[in-house]
Design a protein around this nucleic acid. Sequence first.
DNA 1: TGATTAGTGAACGCAAGCGTTTAAATGAAC
DNA 2: GTTCATTTAAACGCTTGCGTTCACTAATCA
Lengths: 225, 225
Amino acid sequence: MSTCGSTAPEKESGEKTAGPRRAGRPLDAAKRQVIVEAAAHLFFHDGYAATAIEQVAADAGVSKVTIYNQFGDKRALFTAAVECECEKMRGHFSLETMPAGNIRDRLTAIGEAIFAFLFRPEMMQFERRIAAETEIDPAIGAAFLEAGPWRMKQGFAAWLRHAVAGGELAIDDPELAAEQFVSMCKGMGDLECRFGAAVTPENSARRIAGAVDVFLAAYDARPQR
Amino acid sequence: MSTCGSTAPEKESGEKTAGPRRAGRPLDAAKRQVIVEAAAHLFFHDGYAATAIEQVAADAGVSKVTIYNQFGDKRALFTAAVECECEKMRGHFSLETMPAGNIRDRLTAIGEAIFAFLFRPEMMQFERRIAAETEIDPAIGAAFLEAGPWRMKQGFAAWLRHAVAGGELAIDDPELAAEQFVSMCKGMGDLECRFGAAVTPENSARRIAGAVDVFLAAYDARPQR
DNA sequence: TGATTAGTGAACGCAAGCGTTTAAATGAAC
DNA sequence: GTTCATTTAAACGCTTGCGTTCACTAATCA
C-alpha cells in the first residue's frame, strides 16, 4: 500500500491551499488516502461516468461532503486516483531480478515477465480508462506514458545496452530495439485483449518464442550458425 | 457511401419484425441510413454516453420518435452504427495495389500503408470507443476484430505466403510473421497516439525502416551478405 | 477556553437525457 | 378513397447524479 495522496503536492485547483499553518482542525490525510483508494477501484473498474461520488463515499466509509472538501470536484478526484495508480506502477516493474543464463533464455524470461505484467486484467482496464479520459484531459495520458510505457522502455533499453557492452548483442538503436521486442511479444494479443477476445497461453508462448527468434536473428552478436 | 443499415437483417430486439408484407406506410430506409450515419459520427466523436439521441435526431434532420421507431433504443442504434462502420472498414484496406520492386521496397511501402491506415485520427477514435463499449457488450469488440485486425492479418499473411512461394522470403509461420511486422511498425506509436502524445513522422519512418530491417534479417530467403 | 475548521447525515436544487405519450399530418397499399 | 402505419413537434414523467446547504459534532490551534 503506497502513500500516494497523503503527501499530495497541494494543487491550487479546488483543493484548500494549506499555507504555513492553518487554524482549526486539519484535513485528515488518512481519510484522503482511503478515498483515493476507493475512487481508483471504482473509476478503473466501472469507468469515470459510471462511478458515482456517493458510491466512493460509501466504499470509503466517509461522507460525500468530505470528498468535496478534500478534492473540490469529481475530476480532481479522478486525477488524484490516476496519480496514485501511476505512482504504484512506477515501483512495480523492474528488470533487476532477471535470472541468469544465455541471452536467449534471458530474453524469453523478460518477454514472459513483460507479458504477464501488461496483460493483467487490472492493467487492461486501467489502460482503457486512461485512454478514454485522455481526450478530455491530455495530461492524464501524458502522466501514464511517463510513469508506465516510456519508463519501461528506458529500463529495457538500458538492459539491452548492457548486453551490447557485454558483447552478447549488436544493436545500433537500443530504444528502437526495445520497442520492437516488446511490440512483437504483445503482437495482436494486445488488440484481442482490448476487444474482448480470449488470449490463449499457447498463442502467448508462440508470440514470445517468435519474438526472441526474430530479435536474435537481427541483433545476436554471435549467431549460432 | 455504403448502404449498411438500409438492408439490415431485421433483428427481433426492438425493431419491428417485418413479415412478408405489412399494411400501412413502411419504414423509411433512406431515413434509417441518414440516422445511422449521424449516429456513427457523434458516437465515435463524442462517445456513447456523451451522445444525446436528440442531437442525433437534429443532425439527421429527423424526429426523435422516428429513431425509437426504427431502432428501439439507444444501444441498438449504437450497435447499428458499429456494424455500419465495420462494413465500411471491410472494403477499405487491400494489398492488391502495392507497387512492384524488390522485397525490401515492397515491405516498406506496405508498412507505410498500414501505418497511414491505422493511425488516422478517426481510426484511433473508433478504436477507443469500441474498446470502451466492448466491456458492456463483447459482441461489439468481436465484430470489430473480425472486420478489421483479423481480416487484415489474414490478408497480409496471404501476401507473405505468396512471397515465400516466390522464393523471396523464408517463413514457417506467416500469421505470426504478419503480426510481428505490423507490431513492429506500430511500435509504441500505438500507445503514444492513444494516450495523446504526438507521433512525429521521423519516429514513424524510423520504426518502419527498423521493422523492415529486423524482419528481413529473420525472414529474407536470400540475404545480401 | 474559545475560535476555527473538518466531518457527518440528510435534504435540496438543478441539469441532462432517456423513453413515452399525444394529436395531427403524411404517405403507401389495396 | 379508405385504411393503417409512420412521421413530426411538443410536452411530460422519470431517473440519475453532481454539487450545495444546513445543523450539528469532533478535532486542533492559540
